[in-house]
């Protein structure tokens, strides 16, 4: 019985991997196809790969620049959201005060409103104070979308941290900030990592604001990827190559933080 279970477990994991990765695989393999192979019917699995699409993508200076822009925007907006959001989550998780649940809800609700209607006022403000086409404007806007996630996930995470650790620290004379800094932050890393991944991915992929608020200087990766869609011709190979190039940095980021997503860390610390 355990062996069958183990087998099922392995097979399940493989299936998860295969299904998750398949469309991505299809995108990557399409990015190595010529247009003729891409549009062959039925689709071809084996083909002579071509680097032409990548050559075209990288010949376009824009793509590299866009990746850098996206990286700047995603790192700063996520970083700032974590810096701002974790103390707030700590307060929401640990303190009692009036209006706490309303405040918590208000944080979350910042994600609810449709960006289509906020785009215009934000555009007008940005234009007035000269922030159009800068990294800063995107970072600021994205913070408002990432903060709710950080506050939310981290509040939950912090709540699950046993109180006795805190009591012990307090007896040793730790300040509230010490407790936050030395106990909650390190133990909350899995939650922080998960919220940071979501935040990073959100700002990495955001299209609507990026389209409206940027011009030439700060085009982000999704903006460039969609600029090939002229509504007229679809250079599938080029789009798929750009798509692949865009996904890579996020995957690398995920690899970097993924070890924090394991429970091992919490386990060691609790002991």
């Amino acid at each position: 019985m355990p062996r069958v279970g183990r087998l099922l477990h392995g097979a399940g994991l493989l299936a998860v991997f295969a299904v998750t990765i398949f469309p991505f695989y299809w995108m990557v393999s399409s990015s190595f196809k010529t247009q003729t192979d891409l549009l062959a019917s039925p689709p071809v699995w084996l083909f002579t790969p071509t680097l032409a699409n990548y050559a075209e993508v990288f010949a376009d200076q824009k793509v590299v620049g866009a990746i850098v822009n996206s990286l700047i925007v995603a790192v700063f907006s996520t970083g700032l959201a974590v810096v701002l959001g974790t103390p707030a989550a700590f307060a929401l998780a640990r303190y009692e005060f009036r209006g706490k649940s309303d405040l918590w809800f208000w944080f979350i609700s910042n994600r609810f409103i449709s960006p289509i209607v906020l785009a215009l006022p934000i555009y007008l403000v940005a234009q007035n104070i000269g922030l159009l086409d800068t990294h800063l404007v995107l970072i600021l806007v994205y913070i408002t979308f990432i903060l709710p996630i950080v506050v939310w996930i981290c509040t939950d995470q912090f709540r699950s941290i046993p109180r006795d650790l805190e009591e012990a620290a307090r007896l040793e004379g730790a300040s509230q900030f010490d407790i936050f800094w030395r106990i909650y932050l390190p133990l909350g890393v899995p939650g922080i990592a998960v919220s940071a991944i979501f935040g990073f991915i959100f700002s990495w992929n955001e299209l609507l604001y990026a389209l409206v608020l940027t011009r030439r200087a700060v085009q982000t990766a999704p903006v460039v990827a969609t600029s090939f869609m002229s509504g007229y011709e679809l250079p599938w190979g080029k789009i798929m190559a750009t798509g692949t190039v865009i996904v890579l940095p996020v995957t690398i980021f995920a690899l970097l933080v993924s070890r924090h997503m394991v429970r091992g860390l919490t386990m060691g610390a609790t002991k």
Binding site: L120, Y123, L124, L211, V212, T226, S227, G231, Y232
Partner: peptide, 19 residues
């Protein structure tokens, strides 16, 4: 020049002219 997908061209121009 700024290259924009056709679907977003009018939107960009209208916003720009309005502001």
């Amino acid at each position: 020049y700024e290259i924009v997908p056709y679907e977003n061209t009018r939107e960009k121009e209208v916003l720009n002219f309005n502001s």
